[in-house]
Amino acid sequence: MVKGGSGVFKRIAADKWFDFINMTIITIWLIIIIYPLYFVVIASFTDPTALQQSWFWPKEINFEGYKLIIQSDTLWTGYKNSFIYLILGTTINVLLTLPAAYALSRKDLNGRNALMLFVTFTMFFSGGLIPTYLTVKALNMVDTIWAMIIPNAVGAWNLIIARTFFQQTIPDELLDSAKIDGCSDIRFFLHIAIPISKALVAVMILFYGVGHWNAFLNALIYLRSDELYPLQLVLRNILIRNQISTDMIMDLSSLGDQVRAGELIKYGVIIMGALPMLVLYPFLQKYFVQGLLIGSIKG
């Protein structure tokens, strides 16, 4: 250990250099993450020609893209479908996951370790896309809203998180005392386990909800009708296939106006698709953190 004023000075100088390097790395990383989002925002209301000249400051502000988006029936149908899948799907997810997780957390459930092994196995190995499609088709769910909900009704990872939470939160003594008072298993789950697991319920709703809002693979595989497309698939068709719905730009006369409107619509749709999650995230951030910490530390 170095003693004296010079030793203290060296330690403080080393700490300052450490802080400076950390802040520099964090700042660069923050810019790398934030700038693409910032660029999409300014590109959604900046004339595409002016955007090529300045990638940082918006010039020749033009909200024509947002006007066309608001007037588009296709995008509003996608919004409606996404909210339907979000609400209905999350409800079914939670109603199936929580009872299953509670049952698997009970020590008196025979074969629970074998069942957990089966659940864990599905996280690493699956039947594949073709067998899954054939199963969904055999159940007559192709081109229906159920193809967006039933195949992912229970997530293996969320089931493991919920099971671990129940195991660590609900003591055996609480269950024993409830049974002495004549409480049944169903009543204990509904009136005792769930009320003291509100954080878990919130985390499950959040994780499943975000998954449903961002989902487009199932829609891409199983849906054929445009009126069933969620917002993310509509966005995908615009960005990947470079298709702009004719009902959005049919009123524009010149080809140049149509091209500019198409670019504005692309970036505007990205903002419209991400806006709900961007608005809600500051209020739901603590539940994201809870979801990552649930089961990691025994209380």
Rank of each mutant, 00 (worst) to 15 (best):
residue 30 L to D: 01
residue 75 L to I: 15
residue 19 D to T: 09
residue 49 T to Q: 10
residue 25 I to E: 01
residue 32 I to A: 04
residue 21 I to M: 08
residue 76 W to G: 02
residue 44 S to Q: 11
residue 83 F to Q: 01
residue 19 D to I: 07
residue 7 G to A: 15
residue 10 K to S: 06
residue 16 K to W: 11
residue 23 M to I: 07
residue 39 F to Y: 12
residue 83 F to E: 01
residue 25 I to R: 00
residue 31 I to L: 13
residue 59 K to D: 14
residue 61 I to W: 12
residue 45 F to H: 10
residue 49 T to K: 13
residue 45 F to A: 11
residue 47 D to W: 13
residue 86 L to N: 01
residue 33 I to D: 02
residue 57 W to F: 15
residue 50 A to T: 06
residue 64 E to D: 15
residue 34 I to K: 01
residue 15 D to T: 04
residue 20 F to E: 08
residue 84 I to M: 02
residue 95 L to A: 09
residue 24 T to G: 07
residue 90 T to F: 00
residue 18 F to H: 04
residue 73 D to F: 09
residue 26 I to G: 00
residue 22 N to R: 13
residue 4 G to T: 09
residue 22 N to M: 08
residue 9 F to A: 12
residue 14 A to R: 12
residue 79 Y to P: 03
residue 40 V to C: 12
residue 52 Q to Y: 13
residue 4 G to V: 08
residue 27 T to N: 03
residue 20 F to N: 13
residue 10 K to A: 11
residue 7 G to N: 14
residue 10 K to Y: 08
residue 34 I to P: 04
residue 47 D to G: 10
residue 70 I to W: 15
residue 14 A to F: 08
residue 92 I to P: 00
residue 81 N to I: 00
residue 37 L to D: 06
residue 28 I to R: 04
residue 12 I to A: 09
residue 18 F to W: 05
residue 74 T to M: 10
residue 81 N to Y: 02
residue 65 G to S: 13
residue 81 N to C: 04
residue 80 K to V: 03
residue 36 P to W: 09
residue 80 K to H: 09
residue 87 I to W: 02
residue 54 S to L: 05
residue 45 F to R: 13
residue 41 V to M: 15
residue 46 T to I: 05
residue 62 N to K: 05
residue 87 I to S: 07
residue 30 L to A: 13
residue 15 D to R: 11
residue 73 D to T: 12
residue 13 A to E: 02
residue 50 A to K: 15
residue 60 E to F: 14
residue 65 G to N: 12
residue 56 F to N: 05
residue 55 W to D: 06
residue 86 L to G: 01
